[in-house]
Design a protein around this nucleic acid. Structure first.
Lengths: 341, 341
DNA sequence: GTGAAAGCGCTAACAA
DNA sequence: TTGTTAGCGCTTTCAC
């Protein structure tokens, strides 16, 4: 095992004090050029690199942020994580990533280890509406920022799009195509995102005097079996549905797959609209009409705001306004069409 | 700013020494039950959690591993990262994730910061064949393990599938369907993975006495424009290609999209086979015949081997054999068919 | 079974 | 401009 070289070794080699080495490393302004050079040479010759662990211990700064996502293999999180990691890096932070699998327990343990490791702040991409852990964390003035979801209480900085409005726009798009019986498929409403989208769907129906029909709504886990059953029902009822609004692109694509297996043509037999605008929905094989989350921008803002909170911890004022609401945008593609009379 | 509570505070509260607190935390066997209880109570009352930074400083262990991938938004890396993070967590390690964007420079800086942060080991999912940095790292006895790619020198532990064999199997599958003119599309051969697949393709042709035709091979960046041109050429030459082998599912899907836009039917007009078996290729909209990388198993082995290297650093023997080669597997789906006479 | 003291590698006053 | 000294919060001998 080769011994690590530390700043003491460098100091000895360069014939200066350890403090001076530290000053050179940290680019202190007032150092004699010859001294600086001596130190730099010693650093090179010995192949010294600073031990960030030791540094962190007394600066109480790790230059690391924690990122908690529901499922990194889900396109939405994969795409946003990539952006978050890249921006964080450009601002001098590394990212510790945890996958919660949408389990509150995992959130809890992840949060605990991240905090134990003294990350400077945490970005969370998926929390249930009534989660208390995040609330507590935020109350303790620890830098946290949510993206994608937010808390029902609103007591934590969050970067989201207006999901209510997005869902309204999606539903209105279908209505504008003369659809009246519009099904809605969503995962359970534990997340603000899904909760608000559901509300938006209802609102749009109400605005057009279309009665809300619970039989046209599926709220639950998205298994092939369950969705198949649901499709069978809405397609066979006397007044059958002519369009489906899915709470996410992932769900929409699942529905399209099932339609394909049942020889139901999209959009001829049924129009489908999703939500998120993940990369895949743009594919000519999917070509899904959807609502853009502006997820790249969302990631960007989340990191910038978090770093701002970290670096200006004193200015309380600043921190309060780290929330943003982005505008949803309708992306019309080939999975929706005018209802034939 | 609330003050952090440390083990000294706990010691005072419990009326014991700091050393005893440490012993309790670390589950030392010989502590009087009453003492242990006092300490545990104090810990609870004060809400103490150990500062891993301080602990790391003298145990020289961070319980963190670095993960370097080419592009986390690419399904292959998203899926493997998820698995790696999950297994690492189960073994007591957190993961610091970096995205290299397939740039050697980014690899370099990521490596440097990870090492500066004193991660216990590093898993690398994408390195060029002749990369020297990884080589150097490995030579210095730092725990590194590659997955997916390996070094041309073979001087670093790696978990890969037999890419040569996989490509041979893929090509032979097409040949067994009576295809003779088989195009090959790949990114530049900087990665062992791609290099070996190319060799496998050539070998399979040679084994069946099919001449290797450079005009049927595209090696370069995968832009829509470039692939369109290439498809035009191979489909219009006197002896036109009837099948394409793509070096990755991502490329295969890109080709399928272009075929769709050109009204070229898959598999009727042309058979397409990919490589990797990413989740998407299973989709009924894609239904791509491909070679399975067993990427979940690959991730699993990579983490286990790395942790093994970390935790048994002394036993040199052990470390040498941390490489594994997995068997590729042909997954036949709907994108390939027998060539009509 | 428990405490005192030293030290991990760095930074940050305070002197000089 | 530079050196000395004292920690950061923990673990770890070495005593007792």
């Amino acid at each position: 095992m080769k011994e690590r070289v530390n700043s003491k070794d460098v100091a000895k080699k360069a014939g200066v004090s350890q403090a001076t080495v530290s000053r050179v490393i940290n680019k202190y302004p007032h150092i004699r050029d010859t001294t600086k050079e001596k130190v730099l040479n010693a650093i090179n010759e010995l192949g010294f690199t600073v031990d960030q662990v030791a540094r962190s211990l007394n600066t109480r700064k790790t230059s690391t942020i924690g990122l908690l996502v529901g499922d990194i293999s889900n396109s939405f999180f994969a795409e946003t994580s990539k952006e978050i990691i890249s921006i964080a890096r450009s601002l001098g932070y590394d990212v510790m990533l945890s996958n919660t699998d949408h389990q509150s327990d995992n959130l809890k343990t992840s949060l605990a280890t991240l905090i134990g490791k003294r990350v400077d702040g945490i970005i969370v991409g998926s929390v249930e509406r009534f989660d208390e852990q995040i609330q507590t964390l935020h109350d303790s003035k620890f830098p946290v920022i949510l993206y994608n979801t937010r808390l029902a209480s609103g007591n934590c900085n969050a970067v989201v799009i207006d999901n209510f409005k997005g869902a309204r726009i999606a539903t209105e798009h279908l209505i504008s195509l003369h659809h009246k019986k519009i099904a809605y498929v969503t995962l359970p409403l534990n997340y603000s995102t899904l909760y608000e989208r559901m509300e938006g769907y209802k609102q749009a129906l109400a605005d057009s005097d279309i009665p809300y029909d619970p039989a046209s709504v599926y709220i639950g886990e998205i298994s092939t079996q369950a969705i198949e059953n649901f499709i069978d029902i809405i397609m066979s009822s006397p007044e059958k549905c002519t369009a489906v609004f899915a709470a996410s692109d992932q769900i929409a694509i699942k529905i399209m797959e099932i339609c394909k297996s049942k020889k139901i043509k999209v959009p001829e037999d049924i129009s489908i609209i999703g939500f998120d605008n993940i990369d895949l929905s743009r594919s000519p094989f999917i070509d899904l009409t959807t609502i853009s989350q502006q997820h790249i921008k969302m990631s960007e803002i989340a990191v910038h705001n978090l770093v701002n909170m970290i670096e200006n911890k004193d200015m309380e004022e600043e921190n309060q306004n780290a929330s943003s609401v982005l505008e949803p945008q309708l992306i019309i593609r080939g999975s929706t069409k005018v209802l034939d009379k």
